[in-house]
Design a binder for these strands. Sequence first.
DNA 1: ACGGTAAACGGACTATGGTCCGCTTGGTAT
DNA 2: ATACCAAGCGGACCATAGTCCGTTTACCGT
Lengths: 206, 206
Amino acid sequence: MSEPHLLPLLDAPPAERRDAARNRELLLDAAKSLVERCGPRSVTMDAVAAAAGVGKGTVFRRFESREGLMAAVLDHSETDWQAQVMSGPPPLGPGADPWDRLLAFGRSRLETTLLHAELIREAGRAGTRSYAAYSFVAMHTRYLLGELGVTGDLPILATALLAPLEAPILDQQVTIEGFPLERVHAGWVDLARRIVGGDATRAPVD
Amino acid sequence: MSEPHLLPLLDAPPAERRDAARNRELLLDAAKSLVERCGPRSVTMDAVAAAAGVGKGTVFRRFESREGLMAAVLDHSETDWQAQVMSGPPPLGPGADPWDRLLAFGRSRLETTLLHAELIREAGRAGTRSYAAYSFVAMHTRYLLGELGVTGDLPILATALLAPLEAPILDQQVTIEGFPLERVHAGWVDLARRIVGGDATRAPVD
DNA sequence: ACGGTAAACGGACTATGGTCCGCTTGGTAT
DNA sequence: ATACCAAGCGGACCATAGTCCGTTTACCGT
């Protein structure tokens, strides 16, 4: 009649065996290291497995697919960015007024996305959209728009404001069409102004 | 001292041999047929080659890669859409006022993108951005914004207006987040209104 | 400690995209 | 008509993502 006496209080994920967790860590480290050493494009699953000292099957069991692995690496390196937004110094972090925070947010997002462009591409669908970071970004944008008094369908408006900062669109503008970064950034600020509405852009700064 | 006496007036692409052109046609037909019969996801290059009755190497020589082939199929089915915009009946085609044309354009684009979603995905980078149709879409949008008297950096603003209609963003909203189509569409119209500016949205309809 | 079981493991195996190279052929000049 | 040759061709070959299954191992209950 006794029951398992440890953690499975929330039972959905039946917890991960210790060796499994260790291998996940080894693999993530190996992948990160290989990615920054050779670029995401040329990292193969066999190489990651070998570098981590595990079998290939293990890589796929832990991360589903190559895209999944890349998404995991990506997620990892976005985590501290999230921390900066949540609790770092203004204007990106809390403390500044919403308009300034929005501007800092857009700028930072632009740079981060370009920095990780290749990795995002390699992560495919998982990288662009469903990687855990996205919901955070969307949520924060909705919040800021709300603070700025924007009315309307905020989830949709937030998506519209974020869309031009997504990797493929940015890639098109910067790499293919060759627009200078500053021009793209200025365009985004203009978009934000139009979405937020003329009045809200003049927050009482002084 | 004699010179080639036929077409190479514009010499950049030295023209395509007749058998090459025939094979391109055979391959494109085979690919189109397989795509609509089995879905783009499960079409393999070997299958296309076999169906067209040519060797595999030929497929790659004509279309570079799988993505290239998919992009070609996509392009093909977008061509008549372009014709509708250029010379079809209003409000999508010429004749209606720019605001109504913009609305019709957005709506039509939304539907077309969703219709071809899988194909666009399979076409990868080529499908989302560099496939020939994109520059047409961007150009038309710039034109309409200009007609509506929008001022600012039109190429960038056009990109911003089109971005939420791109396949990955749409996919996210409709498939993953589960927003109803009409809500996404309404959101886009709202975005267009904000970008164009309040005054221009009230075109003298009656 | 011991034994049972479900999870995890590894690496051989398969499927498929993409390359290579020796052979063939359409087009052109003579 | 003939000769020449660049372009085109086919299919064997390679690299890599992803699957499968017999074996090993961490964890739990006794």
